[in-house]
C-alpha cells in the first residue's frame, strides 16, 4: 500500500494505563481530504503530532510518504505544511521576513498564491505579525504552510477561535490550494459545516479507536437514527444486536439508535425485532451523527 499517510495500530498514552490512542489504524491516499473528528481529548492532536514526529507512539507504526517520522523527520517536514492553533508565529517579525525565512527552508514557492492570499486578507508584506488579528495571523500561518507547495497539508483545528467570516476565508484559501496542487489534506476540526464543505472522508475517533471511517457522502446517505421508545426495549442489547446497529443512546424517554443502513430497511428490521411499525428513522447531518456516535447518554427529563 503506498498511501501518503499510514497509521498502523498506534498506541499512545500520556499517563500509564490510560492510553489516549489505543490501536488507531487508517491510511490516507494521495489527493484525499480527510477530516479527523472526535471529542476534545480523544487524541486528534496527538495523532497529528505523531505524524509530524513531534511525539512518538508507544507502539504501532506510522509512515508518512513511506518514511518514518522517527528516523527522517526533517525530510518529511520539508514536504508537509502544518497549521495548528497553538503555533505562535514570531511576533516581532514582519510578514516579508517570515516569508523569506520559509523560502529559504523550502525548495519551491508559489509567489502567485502568496500574492492572492495577501490581497484577499488585505495585508501588506511589511505588516508586523504581532499587530495582526487572530484571523489574519492564522491566514499568514496558512500562507506559510501552503505556498511552498507541500504534498500533505496538516491542519490541527485551524479554525478554532475564529469568527465565522474568518473561518470562511480560511476555507477559501484551502480550496484555492486544493485547486492548484490537488494535494492531500488531513485536518481536525469541530466545525462540522466546514468539514462537510471541504472534506471527502471523515474519520471519527472515540475512546482511543477509530469508530467510523467513511466518505462524507456515504455518511449522509447510508446512516440513519431511529427513535425507539424506552418501554419498547428496556434492555438496549435487543437493539444493539440488530444487524447494522452502531449504538443505542438513551435520550429522555427514547433510545436514539444509530444504524448503518437506509431508513426504510431499518424501519422494517425494527418492526421485526421490537414489534412496532413505522418507527421514525431519519438520516442525519454530520453533526448529529457525531453526537449520536460519541455523545453521552442524556438522562430522563424529570417531569
Amino acid at each position: 500500500m503506498s498511501g501518503i499517510l499510514e497509521f498502523d495500530n498506534i498506541v499512545r498514552a500520556y499517563v500509564k494505563a490510560k492510553p489516549v490512542l489505543n490501536g488507531v489504524s487508517f491510511s490516507v491516499a494521495e489527493g484525499e481530504v480527510v477530516g479527523l473528528l472526535g471529542r476534545n481529548g480523544t487524541g486528534k492532536t496527538t495523532l497529528i503530532q505523531i505524524t509530524m514526529g513531534l511525539l512518538f507512539p508507544q507502539s504501532g507504526t506510522v509512515r508518512v510518504f513511506g518514511l518514518s517520522p522517527a528516523t527522517d523527520p526533517v525530510a518529511i517536514k520539508k514536504r508537509i505544511g502544518y497549521v495548528a492553533e497553538d503555533q505562535v508565529l514570531p511576533g516581532a517579525s514582519s510578514i516579508a521576513e517570515l516569508v523569506s525565512f520559509h523560502k529559504y527552508l523550502f525548495p519551491r514557492w508559489d509567489d502567485e498564491l502568496e500574492r492572492r492570499i495577501l490581497d484577499r486578507f488585505r495585508l501588506s508584506p511589511k505588516d508586523k505579525i504581532m499587530r495582526l488579528s487572530k484571523g489574519q495571523a492564522r491566514a499568514i500561518a496558512l500562507l506559510c504552510a501552503v505556498c511552498h507547495r507541500p504534498e500533505l497539508l496538516i491542519l490541527d483545528e485551524p479554525a478554532a477561535g475564529l469568527d465565522p467570516a474568518a473561518r470562511r476565508e480560511f476555507l477559501e484559501v484551502a480550496i484555492q490550494f486544493l485547486n492548484r496542487e490537488g494535494a492531500t489534506i488531513l485536518f481536525s476540526s469541530h466545525y462540522m459545516n466546514d468539514v462537510e464543505r471541504i472534506g471527502g472522508r471523515a474519520v471519527i475517533l472515540d475512546e482511543g479507536k477509530v469508530r467510523l471511517d467513511s466518505s462524507l457522502d456515504s455518511l449522509r446517505e447510508d446512516y440513519c437514527v431511529a427513535l425507539v421508545p424506552i418501554e419498547a426495549a428496556p434492555n438496549p442489547e435487543t437493539l444493539t444486536h440488530i444487524t447494522g446497529c452502531l449504538r443505542a443512546r438513551s435520550v429522555s424517554r427514547d433510545w436514539h439508535v444509530l444504524f448503518h443502513g437506509n431508513p426504510d430497511d431499518v424501519q422494517k428490521l425494527l418492526a421485526q425485532s421490537v414489534g412496532i411499525n413505522g418507527i421514525r428513522c431519519d438520516r442525519m447531518t454530520l453533526e448529529e451523527l457525531f453526537v449520536e456516535l460519541t455523545g453521552n447518554e442524556q438522562a430522563q427529563v424529570l417531569s
Binding site: G31, V33, R168, L171, E172, I175, Q176, L178, N179, R197, I198, G199, G200, D217
Partner: peptide
C-alpha cells in the same frame, strides 16, 4: 469545477462528482 469550487467554497472533488 475548480471555479465553481472556489465560488461555493467547497471541495473541488465534490463539484467534480
Amino acid at each position: 469545477h475548480r471555479d465553481l469550487a472556489e465560488e461555493l467554497v467547497i471541495a473541488p472533488l465534490t463539484v467534480k462528482k
